[in-house]
Design a protein around this nucleic acid. Sequence first.
RNA 1: GGCGCGUUCGUCUAGCGGCCUAGGACGCUGCCCUCUCAAGGCAGAGAUCACGGGUUCAAAUCCCGUACGCGCCA
Length: 486
Amino acid sequence: MTTKVRTRFAPSPTGYLHIGGARTTLYNWLFARHHGGEFILRIEDTDEVRSTPESVTAILDSIQWLGLDWDEGPVDGTASKGPRGPYYQMQRVAIYREHLERLLKDGKAYRCYCTKEELDEMRRLAQLEKRPPRYDGRCRSLTDAKRRELEAAGRKPSVRFKMPTDGATIVDDRIRGKVSFENSLQQDLVIWKTTDGPTYNFACVIDDHLMELSHVIRGDEHLSNTPSQIQIYRALGWEPPVFAHLSMIMGPDGGKLSKRHGATSVLEYRDQGYLPHTMRNYLALLGWSTPDSQQLFTDPELIAKFDLAGCQKSPATFDTVKLQWMNGEYLRATSLDEVVKLAGPFLEKAGLTGKPGPDLKRTIALEHEKFKLLSEVPELVSFFYERPAEPAPKAAKVLGAPGAKDVLLGLAELLKNGSEPFEDKALEARIRAFCAEKGLKAGQVFHPLRAAVSGRTEGPTLFLMLEVMGREEVLARLKAAAERLG
RNA sequence: GGCGCGUUCGUCUAGCGGCCUAGGACGCUGCCCUCUCAAGGCAGAGAUCACGGGUUCAAAUCCCGUACGCGCCA
């Protein structure tokens, strides 16, 4: 077995790339990279009503943001690159039709003239008689005369694939093992619609074969369709690829992950300030693991260690809390310069970029160890750039303590001298001396000082914060706070 | 309704017949560090392995049912 590993992700551009799709993309990508193979992207846009160019863009943007590159596939909304293209299904309809004709000619598919009403009736009766509601194959053996008659009556046919009526089709799934389906229980699948186009299951088979995919790694929801697809491969004289069906991703309530549970679109995670690396690592672990339960992976590690054997059969619940923890881990591991750069758009959005005040790099440095999301950054550093109009409730309480006003005035007096260095260590020494001199405990001074200067009870380490803020601003805020106390 | 898949701490999971008095991670609790909040360090609580039958000297691990959840077809 020396066939080259080729995997794909084949989204329908009918919305954003959601978390489940992102994970499928990641697994396909990891598997291809692990084996030194190729990863292909294909756009399944045969649903003309629901497919939109905006969705194509959103999906490509999402995959790019995740840091997953494809070797063949679309380059923009319409064009593709790669030797097995085009990679937009709507541009491949002639290919599908060609194969349809072949099946028809070989007697492996047939035209079905049943109307929607007739099919509904068939289903109703079956249900009434407690039989499985499936197509009964009545058009399988129409005579030419009958066919001409129906067509003369204006009936537009669909085309159905002739499923074998006995035996079983085995799906040898790399994750779930051998799964057997009775052929007699499968129905003759529609492969060509009355509206003159291929159905999903038909186009998919043809593309996966012509694009020379070695492995089809996709969501669990496709497992039930796989026996039909395997039969189509055989009818066309092709060898099916290796299949691997991934378990689904659930919401916290056990239902399918949906908007109700929060963000489902990959781009929303980007906009909340998650790092692509976090998403790769977290999503990798949602349904896959190594025997030692390793949690944090570099990208090369992920590629080196990823395998289908480590994939979970049971569904996994998406856990935002763990995602956030992981993002915090990676944010801390990111250089300050990089974090400042990444926080840029968030600061911009909060209107903090142009404001006078300390260098952003210095203020962000004070909080770098703390935040889990880039979107938290503006809130954490904003008080450096905007004097708090009112202290936060907790801070107000601290400032309201007896003697607080005197402490503030005393500090203002102490820090007034411009010849003393306004620097972390020196400030700490002087203020501690001030405490001793006044017979106050450190906390009685530190807490009001923090509250007066920042308007908050939590924040950066005190003296470094003062240094970064600068003497003038600190004094102004001390005075303002003291005045506010009346 | 039929078919298929699944079921180990709250969550992600390790486990593939004896090493399991079920391991790790997130979260949670407590302690330490400490000028606050985090981060970090340490300790701890937390799973009768869905349930019921088998097989076996021995089962979370194999087999059969049941329940529940999910998917596909309609």
